[in-house]
Nucleic acid binder design. Structure first.
Lengths: 247, 247
DNA sequence: TTTTCGTCGACTGCCTACAGCATACCGTCC
DNA sequence: GGACGGTATGCTGTAGGCAGTCGACGAAAA
């Protein structure tokens, strides 16, 4: 047997490459943002991030640019990078787009997902329900993302899946702090969705997904109304207080 | 009158900043790709591009990474950047996504576009028809893009518009070489679309836009079947022929 | 002849250094 | 007292340079 055949079969054993620094930095900054260690509107100084992460400015620059492309930070030429400030309006629009993309994904998934796909969905769903029942919120949130990602993947449209994935990441940022509410209801809807997909009923799958994401959206908007955030009214460049020249 | 007020009113007069080199390089490379001076699958060597454009490697690197995020080039870590090879299947999926996004945009535009919006649409449409009648294909293609962009903008959903714009750019790349066919029929459909938007009939606008983009898609697929492209079967790293050490 | 290993060349990834610019501070003039 | 211009400071944007790594080629072994 040729090694390449083996590799083809067990392709899952990809070596976790030490990845480029740039990618590591991207993930690190995303983590800093979602965990609110970097606050919306905050000026991101390249040299500070570089020192904080123990790398040079170059990987940081490249990471910031990629993050800008994905909507995490805003790049003002000559001024620098600022953590994006998620408007209520923008969040609403983003959730609307997510609804659109995922609804279509569900419709297509119902038409294209085979037995294997459905089995994977069931598995994820079971684990999600277990996580909720044991109050493991973090796992539940992660599994929720995985399940939605799998649905888009099963749509058979890679471009659609990629776009949906991008949108989902941003949604997750806005959504995470207030997502811990819906709990079990969400997973009941997931189960119904999988039933529809298994039955090959695209219309029903689409309808369920639409209602599902709209529920999420409504829950988010409701949460936000009680807890508005405006931490940086002036996204102005920060200036370090005059160093008092100790000496 | 305060100067800031003036600036607020005539915000269009933003100084065309000499933009960062990175942005200039991005546009230059995009231009090189759509004009087929850089062929699909071709290995993009940073130093060569840098010399060609008269800049250093850094802006080129950053540009390539941004272009990778938008699907123009593929980045293989440790190997470099390659011009993306548009599969027939992928083009189909991309066009499907475009249909989805623009259909929704049309629906929303019908609900949100005011008189001013409709007037702008009419103006663009008139200019487009004029361009077709005078066989000015380049203008017609450009105006077509502008009109679609305006529809998405009038949807009132900025996120949706941004996404649609990204997708449209890629579509334009795949599509441009074969786009010069549809001509007048396309602009008749545009007119009907604007009528629906003006009437505030979201359902009708969506239906027209769906059929419109599906026509485009069909026309594209038809063209492609007659003219398949596979310029780089092995997207392998290019190797410069051994320099014969003259001397 | 086919396979395997060693070597070479070239390119990427990263770091460091420099120039330009935007902003904030502060003394001066009206 | 308020506005204006000069000056200082920190940051970004860009360039150049070095080490690591990947692929290709060629020689040696089976």
């Amino acid at each position: 047997m040729l090694l390449s055949d083996q590799a083809g079969q067990a392709a899952a054993t990809k070596i976790p490459r030490p990845a480029t620094l740039r990618e590591s930095v991207i993930e690190a900054i995303q983590e800093l943002i979602v965990s609110s260690q970097l606050k919306p509107g905050q000026h991101l100084v390249e040299s500070e991030l570089a020192e904080l992460l123990g790398v040079s400015r170059q990987p940081v620059r490249e990471a910031l640019q990629q993050l800008s492309g994905e909507g995490w930070v805003d790049l003002h030429p000559g001024q620098g990078a600022f953590v994006h400030v998620p408007t209520l309006e923008e969040a609403d629009q983003l959730l609307a787009v997510r609804t659109l993309l995922e609804t279509e994904s569900a419709r297509l998934a119902a038409e294209h997902a085979g037995e294997g796909g459905v089995r994977q969905l069931r598995s994820l769903c079971a684990r999600g329900i277990a996580a909720v029942q044991s109050d493991d919120v973090d796992s539940a949130v992660a599994l929720n993302s995985e399940l939605h990602a799998l649905v888009t993947a099963l749509s058979g449209n890679a471009v659609l899946a990629e776009l949906a994935s991008q949108v989902a990441r941003r949604v997750r940022w806005y959504h995470t702090p207030v997502a811990r509410q819906r709990g079990m209801a969400s997973w009941d809807e997931h189960t119904a969705l999988i039933d529809a997909i298994e039955a090959g009923d695209g219309q029903r799958a689409a309808r369920i997904m639409r209602e599902h994401t709209e529920h999420t959206r409504a829950s988010y908007m409701e949460q936000r109304e009680n807890d508005p955030v405006e931490p940086a009214p002036k996204p102005v460049r920060r200036r370090r207080p005059r160093t008092p020249q100790a000496g």
